[in-house]
Write a protein that binds this DNA or RNA. Structure first.
Lengths: 223, 223
DNA sequence: GCCGAGGGTTTGTGATCACATGTCGATCAT
DNA sequence: ATGATCGACATGTGATCACAAACCCTCGGC
């Protein structure tokens, strides 16, 4: 085990008066998994999770159950918890789902896209270059997802966005393997195409660019 | 061979002698919600659920957490559990998701559809007539979903099917209101179109029929 | 040397409990 | 009669415990 960060404070002086324990654990784990901070097949224990977040097993179990329901974690037949190791078929299916959902989200966001949104996307895209420079795989995934989420938020389709995020969650640990393997040296080409299509109001171009961006990386994962 | 070290299968896939308590509760509630056996806005209590299934609060809580994660249940700010009352925007979004996912599933199932599948679909479709005759709203929803699931199972896309079922789950309580309101007297027209398109191997026709079938009913729910 | 059996340890499960908070109803003052 | 206030009850939360099963490491036999 590596560093152990403790949060033994039952009451936090934060703005939120009641940060439920199980929710803190859930969010903490979810972020780590989605950003690829945990390798595929990594085993977790309820007591370990509880200790790390300074809570007992009960909230840890609830957080794990929730993540299992979203496909972010796997339960062995005996109840052991681990991040899933995806088969090639599963990866291709999830990539197809990303394409299906995100093309639709982008298409719905297009008519609502102002200049301010495009500026934000360009800012995020620029910072992707920085994390690439730093060889920061987790940072790359996080910033890349932030780019997509920023665009899709404009679609005003929360259920659809939630489903897309669920797919990201399932792909998180596997994506780490991809971006840890290939050494990128430039910001994603398709992000520029997405921004260009947004500026031009070109819907077919946008759909193609999003589909390409989503499919491109995942295809390299299937060995 | 030393393969036996790898997979010491303790449980047969047929019948599990000891289904975990939380899983029994989860499946029981899930089925009821998906089939529209619980009205929208209905409040539930952990102790009540536990008493009903003969377990303590702990498994009940885990089952509820899982269903909340799937959007089948709602948590009030104070943690009270209830089935959600969907807004019109939400219903339309979920209908769009159904269309998106199920058209793709049907399309993938088409090249794998044998005559045996079509026969099964026709049998299910016939039994829809019976439940309509009996004015059985829950039975109608269940049989209708069975029709769709039977078709989509052929797509060999478990993640996509799981997402579609999650959408059904979210729409469950609301669907009850629809099918309880309108008095159907004949089996769904679009199911016949789906079967016809399957027989003809007509992919565009199949996509249109599925989209129509999915959209038709839900449109009446708004307002 | 390798395989299998044994036992100590780890791990998940479910019940129970103490506690805080929310909810609902009754009572009382106006 | 109506509205607010207070209190009893209901409800979710998280910790702890006992228990069974699984896992892993070691040891002994072939």
């Amino acid at each position: 085990m590596s560093i152990m960060l403790l949060a033994p404070r039952p009451e936090s002086p934060r703005s939120d008066p009641t940060p439920a324990a199980h929710d803190r654990v859930y969010r903490g784990l979810r972020t780590r998994i989605m950003h690829g901070a945990i390798a595929p097949g990594q085993a977790l224990t309820l007591r370990g999770i509880g200790a790390e977040f300074g809570v007992s097993m009960t909230p840890a179990r609830e957080a794990v159950r929730r993540l299992v329901a979203e496909g972010a974690l796997q339960l062995s037949s005996s109840g052991r918890v681990s991040t899933p190791e995806l088969t090639n078929e599963r990866i291709e299916e999830l990539a197809a789902l990303r394409a299906l959902l995100e093309v639709e989200l982008a298409s719905r966001a297009l008519p609502r896209a102002h200049m301010a949104l495009i500026d934000r996307l360009q800012t995020i895209n620029a910072s992707i270059g920085e994390v690439i420079e730093a060889h920061d795989a987790v940072g790359y995934i996080r910033t890349n997802l932030e780019f997509h989420r920023t665009l899709y938020l404009r679609a005003q389709a929360p259920a659809m966005l939630a489903m897309a995020e669920t797919v990201w969650l399932q792909l998180g640990p596997t994506m780490r393997k991809l971006y840890g393997r290939l050494q990128r040296r430039e910001t994603p080409h398709f992000h520029k195409l997405i921004i260009a299509a947004l500026k031009a109001g070109d819907e077919p171009g946008l759909r193609l660019a999003v589909r390409s961006d989503v499919t491109q990386g995942l295809r390299m994962l299937t060995t």
